[in-house]
């Protein structure tokens, strides 16, 4: 967590944040499903200043073969940032950060994806970050879940993600880049909205026990807002003709 000294007023006397939002208000979120031709499923998300594309392939043959599992399908996730997605140009090769995020996104999706129906296959989720802002892993996960549903991969539930955090000693929803740099805590959360299970949880920063509870609660409330937007994107893509 940044905790960096700043002149910026992160939260004013009226409870308004540096970008004009209330404490429980997410940034602008826009999701479109089915944006790519070659992928079996895809989604594009703008979440604040994040701009992210996700593509899903499969279930399909596993290469290399030794990764193949006779009992179940496997899920592979690649979270990758374009060199121009951040202020300082990033080297194209995946960093340790990108590899870790790929893993936590995969593990956030695994409880929802019914891989046991497809032994010996792989489902591949590829995420490209075109522009990165605070909360890119949550936004990437939101797009990945929509892309999986768009691809017709059987899922027990959707997966919806949103971060909460602590800024100026206050628990707030969906912290932005400035708040991430100067705030006190950042907690990405993902849930399966129907079962209520939390499938991604990380924290950078220090919270009291009460703040910890409040932060999870706030994050989950944000996930539910995202869930509605995910469903609308899928409906727009698939139900346009179906008497809606």
């Amino acid at each position: 967590m940044g905790g960096r000294e700043t002149d910026m007023v992160l939260l004013d006397a009226n409870g308004i944040r540096c970008d004009g939002r209330r404490v429980d208000e997410p940034r602008r979120i826009m999701i479109r499903a089915g944006v790519l031709h070659n992928a079996n499923g895809s989604a594009y998300i703008e979440f604040g200043d994040n701009k992210i594309v996700a593509g899903v392939f499969g279930p399909r043959d596993v290469h290399p073969k030794h990764q193949s599992n006779a009992e179940t399908g496997i899920l592979r996730v690649r979270y990758h940032m374009q060199p121009y997605s951040v202020t300082e140009r990033k080297r194209p090769a995946p960093s340790r950060r990108e590899i870790e995020i790929s893993k936590v996104i995969k593990e956030a999706l695994l409880p929802a994806v019914m891989l046991e129906r497809f032994p010996r296959t792989a489902v591949d989720v590829f995420v490209e970050i075109l522009q990165a802002d605070g909360g890119s892993r949550c936004a990437a996960l939101d797009a990945a879940a929509v892309a999986l549903a768009d691809a017709g991969i059987p899922m027990r539930d959707m997966v919806s993600a949103c971060a909460a955090g602590k800024v100026a000693d206050t628990i707030v929803l969906d912290i932005n880049n400035e708040e991430d740099q100067a705030g006190q805590a950042d907690m990405p959360v993902a849930i399966m909205p129907n079962s209520g299970q939390v499938t991604l949880l990380q924290l950078d920063g220090v919270l009291t026990r009460d703040e910890y509870r409040k932060c999870i609660e706030t994050g989950i409330a944000g996930c539910r807002l995202v869930y509605d937007i995910q469903k609308r994107a899928l409906a727009e893509r698939h139900f346009k003709g179906a008497g809606q």
């Binding site: 929802a112 549903a149 059987p154 899922m155 027990r156 539930d157 959707m158 399966m192 909205p193 129907n194 079962s195 469903k231 899928l234 409906a235 698939h238 139900f239 179906a242 008497g243 809606q244």
Partner: peptide, 11 residues
């Protein structure tokens, strides 16, 4: 009208 559903929806 056909009824539309998504993953996780209660039918």
């Amino acid at each position: 009208m056909p009824r539309t559903v998504m993953p996780g929806d209660t039918i």
